[in-house]
Design a protein around this nucleic acid. Structure first.
Length: 641
RNA sequence: GCCGAAGUAGCUCAGUGGUAGAGCAGCUCAUUCGUAAUGAGCGGGUCGCCGGUUCAAUCCCGGCCUUCGGCUCCA
């Protein structure tokens, strides 16, 4: 695919960076330097740890290279010539490997600017003087070829634009984005806290944040009732045996919290002088019968003989649940089902726990304990298509109601080269076809991505970006032919025979934590009235109208409105300012003339002062705005601070 | 987990080898005010934690914890 002019510019900037880098650090070994969505980077192997000051020096050197107005010259060479060039330049450490990646028969080319020459398919700007606006942004570690078994290189990130104005605008946008960061707004608006003593990645929802979450849960709960879901509740833990049946353990044990082993069993193991490794082996072990049962049900060897142990050496324990499905499956399995009962749709806001690597934790968007707005649908194969469409419709209702229109749809398929998936390929094919067909019913573009499936089945994900451009999977719908087999689920068909149901896993929000994190950034803290923790601020101008304020507060609360009376002795301007900073949608200013007329002076967060209105119609209009879950109007620019 | 950076009051940040300061926020008092900051006073910090060097460490050194930017991972 040819590069866009902007990519060409940024790619050229990365060559200029490499040119500057070799001038300052001739011993540097270069890897690759491609353009990205918002700039470019170059990966380099260098013993010297690059510092912020080095970036400044490199940027200055890049300016010189740009001013030297070097032409970018393409040179097409044979594979042998290429090797010679790389070796002559002392860059064989990574570049020879990169050269080997180029398929036989494909043209090998170098680009030269000034004294620098790099293996590169191109393309580039004609002259380095085209680079008028660039900036080096940060240094980060990055594994060679993205593989953590390889050496970690230093990655220099930068960005470039055709003009200085566009660069300045971009940098300004980055600064603005920081103000919308859910971690900052979450603290400022007191929506959630994370406490070291409680634990990394564990969200404590404060009263204000809990209101938002509760409103979202009530909203989706209403939609679920319309669609025939049934609410269930299940505990936060389950026995290890349950997850051995489901396949979560031991295959995914590195992303789960350690098992909780009963004290007596633990004591017994300790007195046997059992080593740690032995204990893990016993936790992972299964009985011969368990192995036979599962293997027979799934029709292949999912549990190998080396996991079988004598009964007395088995060790069970409990696990914090990494998913809700096994619990829901057990509810389904507790009753015989007729085809007439299906689909069965079991829904729960279920909290799950996953052991995320410490370096991956991020505010509310990547956490170790989170609550999925989960549901599992058990249906016949014929019902899958319609149920999938119903699930997708639900996701769309959620996103539309919240005005989140900037998302992409990803159909996650299995990676044919990976062994991490369980189940029969024929069922996978059916499930993937069903997902593709359902995605086509959405009138929105989607991409099919191999390797993005869940381990038990393909899925349709709704992916949105946060303020700094990182993508997060929110809503998800997944088809599963495998867990019904592993748990030996069945229903009685019209033919009076036993049949296997198909499962659909779906979560329109995904996780309440991640969704709220993204939602905070989406609204920049200016929540629609129905979600706003505080909907109305009552501001009496003086103590003389406190009594009127109290009576309005009582009326608002009686109407179910979340209102607060500001009885500080500040001047009006200070109270207005405080309400604005706290992003309260409506501030009602109360003075003598309002009290006299049973009126309020309305100040809207979006529109500013709206003048005096009688209280009763204001209240009705407010209730209507809440009932319809109206989205906030675009805010007028704030006055200069 | 890995690479790099950071951690001083609730928040934003200054500062020094001799046990710390500002603004905002909070509290008290005065003020009773018409659409983004009324004034005065007061309280508040084991300078992330643990060790080491030193007569003395918030500052220098080491380890750990946490956060941030990436990488890897994300059933």
């Amino acid at each position: 695919m040819p590069m866009t002019p902007l990519e060409e510019l940024r790619h050229s900037a990365s060559h200029v960076l490499a040119t500057a880098l070799l001038r300052l650090f001739p011993e540097a070994k270069l890897d690759i330097g491609p353009p990205t969505d918002s700039g470019f980077y170059y990966d380099v192997d260098l013993d010297h740890k690059l510092t912020q000051e080095d970036l400044t020096r490199l940027e200055a050197e890049m300016k010189k290279v740009a001013e030297e107005n070097q032409p970018f010259l393409r040179k097409e060479v044979s594979r042998e010539e290429a090797k010679a060039i790389i070796t002559a330049r002392g860059q064989e450490r990574y570049k020879l490997g990169r050269l080997a990646d180029i398929p036989e028969g494909e043209q090998i080319s170098f680009y030269q600017n000034g004294e620098f020459m790099d293996l590169c398919a191109g393309t580039h700007v004609r002259y380095s003087s085209k680079l008028k606006a660039f900036k080096l942004l940060s240094i980060a570690g990055a594994y060679h070829r993205g593989d953590e078994k390889n050496k970690q290189l230093q990655r220099i990130y930068g960005t470039a634009f055709p003009t200085k104005e566009e660069l300045a605008q971009h940098l300004e946008r980055l600064d603005q984005a920081k103000l919308r960061d859910h971690r900052k707004l979450g603290r400022d608006l007191k929506l959630f806290v994370i406490d070291d003593e409680v634990g990394q990645g564990l969200i404590l929802w404060t009263p204000a944040g809990s209101i938002i979450r509760q409103e979202l849960q009530d909203f989706i709960g209403g939609e679920l009732r319309k669609q025939g879901y049934q609410q269930v509740f299940t505990p936060h833990i389950g026995k290890l045996a349950l997850y051995k049946t489901s396949g979560h353990f031991p295959y995914y044990k590195e992303s789960q919290f350690s098992p909780i082993v009963e004290n007596e069993a633990l004591a017994r193991i300790v007195t046997e002088n059992c080593a740690c490794g032995e204990m893990i082996a016993r936790l992972e072990a299964v009985s011969a019968k368990f192995r036979e049962d599962i293997n027979a049900r799934t029709g292949k060897e999912v549990i190998t003989a080396d996991r079988v142990r004598p009964e007395e050496q088995l060790l069970d324990g409990f696990m914090l649940k990494p998913m809700n499905c096994p619990h829901h499956i057990k509810i389904f399995a507790s009753q015989p089902h007729s085809y007439r009962d299906l689909p069965v749709r079991l829904a729960e806001f279920g909290t799950v726990y996953r052991w995320e690597q410490s370096g991956e934790l991020n505010g509310m968007t990547r956490v170790r304990g989170f609550t999925q707005d989960d549901a599992h649908l058990f249906c016949t194969e014929e019902q899958v298509a319609a149920e999938l469409i119903g699930c997708l419709a639900l996701v769309k209702i959620v996103l539309t109601t919240l005005g989140m229109t900037d998302y992409r749809i990803r159909v996650g398929l299995r990676d044919p080269d990976s062994g991490k998936y369980t189940g029969d390929p024929a069922n996978w094919d059916k499930a993937e076809a069903a997902c593709r067909a359902a995605a086509q019913t959405l009138d929105a573009p989607f991409t099919e991505e191999p390797g993005e499936a869940a381990f038990y089945g393909p899925k349709i994900d709704f992916v949105v970006k946060d303020v700094i451009g990182r993508e997060w999977q929110l809503g998800t719908v997944q088809v599963d032919y495998n867990l019904p087999i592993r748990f030996d689920l069945s229903f009685t068909g019209a033919d009076n025979q036993s049949h296997r149901p198909v499962m659909i896993h779906r979560a329109p929000f995904g996780s309440m934590e991640r969704f709220c994190g993204v939602l905070i950034e989406h609204f920049g803290g200016d929540f629609p009235v129905w979600l706003a923790p505080e909907q109305v601020r009552l501001v009496p101008i003086s103590d003389k109208v406190q009594e009127y304020g109290r009576s309005l507060l009582a009326q608002l609360q009686a109407a179910g409105i979340r209102a607060v009376l500001d009885s500080h002795s500040d001047k009006l301007g200070a109270k207005i300012r405080r309400a604005e900073l706290e992003k309260v949608p409506y501030t009602l200013v109360l003075g003598a003339k309002e009290a006299e007329a049973q009126a309020v002076s309305v100040r809207s967060r979006a529109r500013g002062d709206e003048g005096v209105h009688p209280f009763a119609p204001f209240l009705e209009q407010l209730k209507e705005e809440i009932r319809t879950r109206a989205l906030p109007e675009k805010k007028q620019p704030a006055p200069a601070a």
